[in-house]
Design a protein around this nucleic acid. Sequence first.
DNA 1: CAGAATCCAAATTGATACTG
DNA 2: CAGTATCAATTTGGATTCTG
Lengths: 150, 150
Amino acid sequence: MERGHTDVTALAEGPEDCAAVKPVLARIGDKWVVLVVRLLGRRGPRRFNELRREIGAISQRMLTLTLRGLERDGLVTRTVHPTVPPRVDYELTDLGRSLMGPIEALGNWAFAHKDEMDAARARFDRLHGKAAPPPSARPTAKAAGSALKG
Amino acid sequence: MERGHTDVTALAEGPEDCAAVKPVLARIGDKWVVLVVRLLGRRGPRRFNELRREIGAISQRMLTLTLRGLERDGLVTRTVHPTVPPRVDYELTDLGRSLMGPIEALGNWAFAHKDEMDAARARFDRLHGKAAPPPSARPTAKAAGSALKG
DNA sequence: CAGAATCCAAATTGATACTG
DNA sequence: CAGTATCAATTTGGATTCTG
């Protein structure tokens, strides 16, 4: 049953099922999870600071939190080598590896369509007069006052 | 080039590419986006409150924000019918439809492995004495006081 | 090196009220 | 019906400090 990511074409759609997969999707949806899983999947086991360096923009706290979450969900194993200085290796579990298929699909899609999305965003922003509201874009009090920052 | 979700097996892995796809993944990673795209993809165009009802747990504001984001990224179209009361239909664009493959793959994976993840979580929590630290789990002042709730 | 703890800034979200 | 505006509460994330 290791045929990649189970191509079950018929997926339930009831609200109960939505609720069931929601926490799973929440974890996968985590920005860092995708990067960490890809890294561990493609380049094998990694130490804490190796991951940190290779990911680049992540803070220590977020990496710790991300790895802990992945470990909790059974997607990675954490192996502590009782040496000094300490050495900790993180590696994908079978479950974690089974996630690579869907993750790659998503990554490939993102890579293949980022230009279209960029163009769409530019067009939308132009039509709406907005500059570039990052994610949600709502006036946050500080935004009003910071207008004169330049 | 409409062969589903481009099965490009070789995906770049440099940090620059990571940066490029990050915003894309961020949008896809959004909990609601997956649900909305699936709904629009499987059941066709939908009105605002139809989506609201069918999703269930979403607030009006979040649905508005989610749809706006999807529209901005060129994944859905928003059609206003100048009737009274107003009627607005949301529908996937071609780009949006092309996302369905990866989304389904992810949804299927989540559905297929939620039990394993649940089990893993339970085991982890048991070993760590923690009750059930939802996502990140950090002491938030209020959490300290609620420890004696059991 | 790997991580825990603390502090604090900023983003996210829900509830509510108002509008065309 | 389909939003927008505003406010309050929660969450999230980064920076810093400390430890084994």
